[in-house]
Write a protein that binds this DNA or RNA. Structure first.
Lengths: 221, 221
DNA sequence: CAGCCTCTGTGACTAGGTCACAGACCACTC
DNA sequence: GAGTGGTCTGTGACCTAGTCACAGAGGCTG
């Protein structure tokens, strides 16, 4: 059996020993999920360790008042550490994972996962790295929520999302969910940015007119 | 070599195979740190995997304006997952770990750690569990910071700290650090609780007069 | 007792979250 | 082209939380 092409999507797995890659390839299945699928969440847990080949998964929390906050995204080439924690089932948690795009993932059954962890240093490193990165990331999220001003966080987010084109296709509500705040707050801040000539807004979209001004605010102490 | 008494402090390690427990015991060192020691933090990383035999370690973040927030505590019988993430060094993070009491810990050198992970399912489970619990915990912290009212969070914390005696030896400043808010906010809320007859306060201490009332507020939606 | 440090209380102000509601924009149908 | 319903945005009023400045109170030490 030759390695299917998905394995090349994971830089961390290139160095897998053949005796290890064999079972991995044989027992794991490629699954496809349409955009919008709730992959895990309260009352819905996966039965396998998932590694993303294609697409992105958004992990978020929802409050009982309906406010949302995006904790992080898992993108192609990464494993979903949360699924692992979920798999182990040591404690309940109520975040949810949602396919943002059509998603292609490799599902590794629990038995194979345990076996690979036991036998392959490369695979262990791959899994542990994912865990570490997640924890690090959550630390940053906590720091921002707890200590950063909302205008600074919004400016950061706009710069991040604007990319090269400076065009962002998101509603105020979606931006609010990214930052864990209310839609009205985003609307007011965007108005202020627009008043200063930093952005232009239209229904469901934002264009960055002066990204460098946003960047400067984003870097504020 | 017989097992030293520290190993009995870790329920997760009782079932270790002798061939695994041997190297663990031989190469690891018991270290003692006085209360207040900064175990890790910006510019100070540990060189070994740490498991706490005695005492507690507080992991917290400090903002540039001086506000603090306690993320979690590691207590006796637990391993410091953060140290692991730190060890792996895949990314920087700037939380700090501080010995709250005098601490006795077992330091496992990196090589032994890797070896144990490779050879012992029990040890792997021990380490992964610590990771999972931490991630779960951080999720809860984020949810509370992002979505919960401060009076509810304070009531929860008071009930949690009050224990059976209902007596708490903390200053307003220390409570503020627990919850990641400002001292004045705590002072005002405590005044309000006292006005309602739920608590009595004195310099550096709080007594719960009606814990059930606090519990009810803490359980608020 | 005086001096000093820590802890607590308070008013004024700003930022952020909630609520209610009014328009504006868009797609679709008739 | 007019009507209709759904989504998106704007706004005022109000409340909670965080910041700043400063005043006392409590407790310890020389």
């Amino acid at each position: 059996m030759t390695a299917p092409d998905w394995i090349s999507a994971f830089p961390g797995l290139k160095t897998l020993e053949p005796s290890v890659a064999g079972p991995l390839i044989e027992t794991s299945k490629v699954v496809r999920l349409p955009a919008g699928t709730k992959i895990f969440g309260p009352g819905q847990a996966p039965e396998a360790y998932l590694m993303l080949v294609e697409g992105t998964v958004r992990v978020q929390q929802v409050s009982d008042t309906g406010r949302e906050i995006v904790l992080y995204r898992v993108s192609a080439g990464e494993s979903c550490a949360l699924t692992t924690a979920c798999l182990m089932g040591y404690e309940e948690y109520q975040a949810e994972g949602i396919a943002e795009t059509d998603v292609e993932a490799v599902a590794i059954p629990r038995g194979t996962f345990d076996d690979l962890i036991a036998r392959s240093a490369a695979f262990r490193k791959f899994v542990f790295t994912a865990f570490s990165i997640r924890i690090t990331n959550l630390f940053r999220v906590i720091e921002e929520i707890a200590f950063s001003r909302m205008d600074v966080r919004l400016a950061q987010k706009l710069v991040e999302l604007g990319g090269v084109s400076g065009h962002i296709d998101l509603t105020h509500q979606q931006l609010a969910a990214e930052l864990g705040t209310a839609r009205e707050v985003i609307s007011r801040l965007l108005n202020e940015f627009q008043r200063r000539g930093w952005i232009t807004t239209s229904r469901g979209a934002i264009d960055l007119a002066r990204p460098e001004a946003l960047r400067q605010l984003a870097a504020a102490p």
